[in-house]
Simulated assay, not measured.
Amino acid sequence: MRKVTYKGGPMTEAMYYVLLALLQPNHGYQLMQAIADVSRGRLQMGPGTLYGVLSRMQKDGLISLAEEDGRRKTYQITAAGEQALRAEYNRLQSLLRDGSLLEGSDGNE
């Protein structure tokens, strides 16, 4: 069993969307498409960024290899990864709630 080294804290946008996209196991190209879909086209992740993030997240125990078929590697989220994703989602929800102070403000106060 791989030791989990992720210390928590705010995730990068790339990490967050990779974990969201890995709620269903995916390989590289599928994963780039899934990230674009999950972000509604807002985030287009290239292979260099993707594979750097995947490597780091695998070392941190947030994702694991589900299957390796030649050069194609299929990744999946781990239980620790899902827990970290939910914690980040809750953190982001808190930020939005706190930001509700801006509602009704014209920005000139």
Rank of each mutant, 00 (worst) to 15 (best):
P47A: 02
A34W: 02
P10H: 08
A34L: 09
V38N: 15
L19K: 02
R42Q: 05
Y6T: 13
M45V: 04
E13K: 05
E82F: 03
L31S: 12
A80Q: 11
K7N: 06
P47W: 11
N108V: 02
G61L: 09
D60N: 14
M57F: 06
V53F: 07
K3P: 09
L101G: 00
A80M: 03
V38G: 12
D69W: 11
L101Y: 14
E67H: 08
L95I: 06
S105C: 03
R72C: 12
K3C: 11
V18N: 08
S94K: 11
D37L: 14
L85A: 02
E88R: 00
N90Y: 12
L43M: 15
G48C: 07
G81L: 04
S39I: 14
Y51P: 05
E68V: 14
G99L: 02
R42L: 09
P25F: 09
V53G: 01
S94N: 01
D60S: 13
S64E: 11
M11N: 01
Y29H: 12
A87S: 03
M32L: 05
Y75D: 04
E88K: 04
R71W: 07
D37V: 07
S55C: 12
P25R: 15
L62E: 01
G46A: 04
N26L: 10
Q76L: 09
H27Y: 14
P10N: 13
Y51C: 04
A79V: 06
M32Y: 04
A36H: 13
G28I: 07
M57Q: 10
N26C: 11
L102G: 01
K59I: 12
G61Y: 12
E109D: 03
T49E: 05
A84V: 04
G46C: 00
K73Y: 08
A14N: 08
D69Q: 15
D98H: 09
G46T: 02
I35E: 04
D98N: 12
G99A: 03
S94C: 04
L54M: 06
S105N: 10
E82Y: 05
V18I: 09
L19S: 08
L102C: 00
S64F: 04
M1H: 13
I77G: 04
